[in-house]
Design a protein around this nucleic acid. Structure first.
Length: 415
RNA sequence: GUGAGUGUAGCUCAACUGGCAGAGCAUUGGACUGUGGCUCCAAUGGUUGGGGGUUCAAGUCCCCUCACUCACCCCA
């Protein structure tokens, strides 16, 4: 029956939903620009190799979730995340540190859609390049927390962890292996696969028996090298200094390979299975990995759709414009109609024209159906008296306004 | 990629063990010729997602397929 339909996991956005997205984006710009971040717009597609290199060849994103396409024998991909592009742009344009970037835009991952998860989805993220001190880990989290409070999201759970550096992880992996060896038959097949590919992610498993086994397993957090441990402890101290309430989750890990040391997630109840609204961490090795200088960096991203699922429907920033319907009776009044419309549009009102050949009744009916706030009527009677008739469609109150004082009248009406 | 649930008019949903496809809302017209909403009357609207099978007979039972939703995987 339906010939054309949108691709799975994409959405058509209309009136209120678009307004809500715009409201969030606007707030993000205001807030983060006031904290020294500058907006950056990178392309929505990049060379595929950029993400393979940064996110990790063996991650699910790179292995099966990328929208790949080839043009002129070159491999491209619709970006699955924002960080790699920002670093690429920073390196390519030879910018200076420390640098703070804000990005806003769509990302693409070929996953099965679910509540709060789409194939084309919107992210707002910030990146702080060239700051390695633990103070900035805490500041990033504090910024995220304050922004979410600002847009009305007070109930949230902040979880943090440290996944150390490659050196910590190498030693820890051996220790974990010792513990798991005798039990490896009892964990689920997914976990056996995970252990081979990205062993930290076994802790993400939701299988009951797996979780019981992992509860007593050694944790990366308890096996950090001195520097990483010191860094982590300082992050926690600074978070306390910022009065941020957080939970240490020793099982918290990340799905992207480039993270080091601090990782964190902001979660919310009542979002269903996809309950993470914001996530990020430190990625001190990525800049060098992508061919830049050896600079410590950190950042996070939040999912706009997930935010909108839990925020109230009418965000305070959305102001409704007045909708005014113009009725003239007879085609000879079209020039008058155009004049009125110009006055309304100059004053930022919404103006919709009725069909001049139709009856007053049918035009009013249409004005009502599209939920006009006011109707302006001009016909023979008004022409004789030199007035416009203005009808309030909610109350039904109607008044005559002198044509020469109409502009002033509109100023008040649309203020 | 795996599993479960759902698909009937533009929308929200009915139709007992297989037996004439229905209601409310919306739309259009009229009651009502420069005054919308309310009320009343009437009309329009369907390949029951698509294909195949069983049956005298399928919206209903069986198989396949497509779409949506939720969950797994994974992630914002």
């Amino acid at each position: 029956m339906m010939i054309y339909q949108r691709p799975k996991g994409t959405r058509d956005l209309f009136a209120l939903e678009l307004k809500r997205i715009e409201a969030i984006n606007y707030q993000a710009r205001q807030f983060f620009e006031s904290s020294g971040y500058v907006e950056i717009k990178t392309p929505t597609f990049e060379f595929a190799q950029l993400f393979a290199r940064s996110i990790g060849e063996t991650t699910d994103i790179v292995e099966k979730e990328m929208y790949l396409f080839e043009v002129d024998k070159r491999q491209y991909v619709l970006r699955p995340e924002g960080t790699a592009s920002v670093l690429r742009a920073f390196i390519e344009n030879n910018l200076r540190v420390p640098a703070r970037f804000l990005y806003i835009g769509p990302m693409f991952r070929k996953e099965r859609p679910q509540k709060g998860r789409y194939r084309e989805f919107l992210q707002i993220g910030i990146e702080l390049l060239g700051e390695g001190e633990p103070f900035y880990d805490a500041e990033m989290i504090e910024q995220a927390n304050r922004f979410l409070n600002l847009i009305g999201l007070n109930e949230k759970i902040i979880e943090i962890n440290s996944i150390g550096c490659p050196e910590c992880r190498r030693r820890y992996k051996e220790k974990l292996l010792q513990y798991l060896k005798p039990k490896i038959d009892r964990v689920c097949p997914d976990c056996q696969r995970r252990f081979q590919r990205n062993f930290l992610r076994i802790f993400d498993c939701k299988n009951k028996t797996c979780q019981i086994i992992y509860t007593d397993a050694p944790k990366i957090t308890d096996n950090l090298c001195d520097q990483c441990l010191n860094h982590y402890n300082q992050v926690k101290n600074f978070l306390n200094a910022f009065s941020i309430e957080y939970i240490e989750n020793k099982k918290l890990v990340r799905g992207l390979d480039y993270y080091t040391r601090t990782v964190f997630e902001f979660k919310h109840r009542g979002l269903g299975a996809q309950n993470t609204i914001l996530a990020g961490g430190r990625y001190d090795l990525l800049m060098k990995e992508l061919g830049g200088k050896d600079l410590a960096c950190l950042g996070w991203a939040m999912g706009v759709e997930r935010l909108l699922l839990i925020l109230p429907e009418n965000l305070p920033e959305i102001k409704q414009k007045k909708k005014i319907f113009i009725i003239v009776i007879g085609e000879r009044f079209i020039s008058e109609m155009v004049k009125i419309r110009g006055l309304i549009q100059q004053r930022d009102g919404i103006c919709i024209l009725g069909n001049p050949s139709a009856t007053l009744k049918s035009q009013l009916k249409k004005a009502n159906r599209i939920q006009s706030d006011y109707v302006i009527i001009f016909g023979e009677d008004e022409e004789k008296k030199g007035v416009y008739t203005v009808r309030n469609m909610e109350t039904g109150y109607q008044e005559s306004v002198e044509i020469k004082s109409f502009a002033d009248y509109l100023n008040k009406l649309l203020q």
